[in-house]
């Protein structure tokens, strides 16, 4: 138990960081109604761009901005494959994801792992987040450097920006595109443009998450994004199932995604503490997502059946 409690801050930190990616997934999956598999690739792209620039002495914020832009570019490619080339969205994402494996390797100089040397003087100070900071005061780090604090503020700012954006004319057009493309076109909305924009926005955030993850673990691995979409979906769905009834406001819905990601990592941590081989985690993730995706469907189905039965009995 104490082992779990000790690991809790780390799990929450990780969940918060992954929450940023999950918010990106929310934009495509919930708002645009597209299951975008690009994220498995673009997460690593963000980390790769960041680690290469940062270790070559580029300013941290510039490197993060570059990671964001690289992710948006990946989203652009998926978007164009889908809209201009007419390839189904899910396949477009798979194609980009596959291509990104080679591109990510190329960005990282054909190495599967590129590390940030945090033992070198001054490097750790520059980072926004790091596993080291999780120790807090015990490790001699002030509270305002703790990942929970830093990423928490980062996430709050991000939610504020997104809340603002989706309340604008363009943001509303994006929501309409996902809700009813026929209606959107009838109102003069270029649905193709909106889809591409949404995919760019989403993958930009995913890549930004990749850059933060890379800092957190002081390295970027080619495998980092493997199964990321499932983690993102898990966060979105857990957040919705647990908090959907209470959180109706759009900003709160985004917050529930972040909370969903945190819960996911806390549960994962608990399972690991119970002695499960870490190699089973992917299986576990898939089961969690499958179960949570099933619940709302079955609820609707059986609720629908019983109400029909009632109606028949009353007739």
């Amino acid at each position: 138990m104490s082992g779990f409690l000790n690991a809790l801050p780390g799990a929450v930190s990780q969940g918060l960081i992954w929450g940023i990616m999950a918010i990106g997934v929310y934009i495509t999956y919930k708002i645009l109604d597209i299951a975008d598999l690009t994220v498995d690739g673009s997460l690593c792209t963000g980390g790769a761009v960041f680690v290469m620039l940062f270790t070559n002495g580029i300013n941290l914020w510039a490197a993060m901005l570059a990671a964001l832009l690289a992710g948006m570019l990946a989203g652009l490619v998926t978007g164009l494959l889908h809209t201009v080339c007419g390839i189904p969205a899910i396949l477009s994402g798979i194609l980009t994801q596959l291509a990104l494996y080679s591109i990510n390797m190329a960005i990282m100089g054909m190495k599967a792992t590129v590390a940030i040397n945090i033992n070198q003087e001054g490097v750790l100070d520059k980072l926004l987040v790091s596993l080291r900071f999780v120790q807090g005061s015990k490790g001699g780090f002030p509270f305002y450097r703790h990942p929970i604090f830093v990423v928490g503020i980062f996430t709050a700012g991000l939610i504020a920006v997104l809340y603002w954006f989706f309340g604008r004319e363009l943001g509303a057009a994006l929501r309409a595109t996902g809700s009813n493309p026929n209606m959107a076109r009838a109102q003069g909305i270029n649905t193709d443009f909106c889809k591409v924009l949404g995919l760019m926005l989403s993958n930009g955030l995913v890549a930004l998450c990749g850059a933060l993850l890379c800092q957190y673990s002081s390295a970027n691995e080619i495998k980092v994004g493997q199964g990321a979409i499932v983690i993102g979906l898990a966060a979105v769905i857990i957040g919705e199932v647990l908090l959907g009834k209470v959180f109706r406001n759009f900003a709160l819905k985004l917050l529930s995604v972040s909370i969903g990601a945190i819960l996911y990592y806390v549960v994962l941590q608990a399972v690991l503490q119970m002695g499960l081989d870490a190699n089973y985690l992917k299986l576990l993730s898939a089961i969690v997502v499958a179960v949570f995706l099933t619940i709302p469907n079955w609820k609707g189905k059986y609720f629908g059946k019983s109400s029909r039965k009632e109606a028949a009995e009353n007739a």
Partner: peptide
């Protein structure tokens, strides 16, 4: 959304 039919949609309030 309908009130903005045919207009360019930017970052003005929705």
């Amino acid at each position: 959304l309908a009130a903005r039919r045919g207009q360019t949609r930017g970052l003005k309030a929705g």
